[in-house]
Design a protein around this nucleic acid. Structure first.
Lengths: 120, 120
DNA sequence: TTTCGCTATGCATATTTCGCACAACGCACT
DNA sequence: AGTGCGTTGTGCGAAATATGCATAGCGAAA
């Protein structure tokens, strides 16, 4: 009576280096939504340090600038994504949705029936 | 001129706990192929300690015995997978293959053309 | 009773992850 | 000019995790 489920993960690689996956996708979304890296970190419940490190790693493997960061100013600064990043995210989101659906489909085909008994 | 590729990963979960993924699949295969955990570890270039820890974690979330371990004897002992494990692996392998194929397909559809220029 | 190669595990070390604390920045308002 | 504010950026120690060495225990066959 244990629940058997399938999970799938999709990500893009640039020259063999992980580049855009689910976590980073959510991170970028949060940045765009909140207007700053700091606010995004708080939003996601992560430390700014961690988020910053992720972005750092991400930009190292990216052939184009991911975001425009402004520091200082009345409200301390801000960050927003470039147009290229937005289109990339849109495409990636599409692929991810489709692959997840395909995974569910294959799962139900191959494991038809035994969703609680693991191997019959 | 950077190479953009898609990668995908599929795994099974039992009650929300990771249960069978690609690494463990290879590990189980190696055990069956070699007839012992020790030989499998050497085969995969891992330390026995590490392999053992993985199996330990795996069996904790498994509702049925994964393998039959025999200790002692002339040749020290042996380990082989149970029939349930074998059928489970077969099904999982099938799902994984199909999902990978689906991922490639979706990728080519959504990123048609720009395999080197990331976002155009 | 000895031998042998395997399973099993304690423990010290190496590696990675994590986050606190603080520096730099620059616009607005005084 | 000077101060305040909320960002971005970063050094560094601590905490968690991964790793593997070294060793104990096992039991059938010789």
């Amino acid at each position: 009576m244990s629940q058997l489920r399938i999970r799938s993960k999709v990500w893009l690689e640039v020259d063999g280096q992980p580049f855009l996956g689910d976590g980073r996708y959510r991170l970028l979304s949060a940045i765009q939504r909140n207007g700053s890296i700091n606010a995004a970190a708080r939003d996601l419940g992560m430390s700014y340090r961690k988020v910053w490190a992720q972005l750092q790693a991400m930009e190292e493997t990216t052939p184009f600038p991911l975001m425009e960061r402004r520091t200082g100013g009345k409200d301390g600064g801000a960050t927003h994504l470039t147009a290229e990043t937005l289109t990339l995210m849109k495409r990636f989101g599409e692929v991810r949705t489709r692959v997840n659906a395909a995974a569910d489909h294959c799962f139900h085909e191959c494991f038809a029936g035994d969703h609680d008994d693991v191997a019959t």
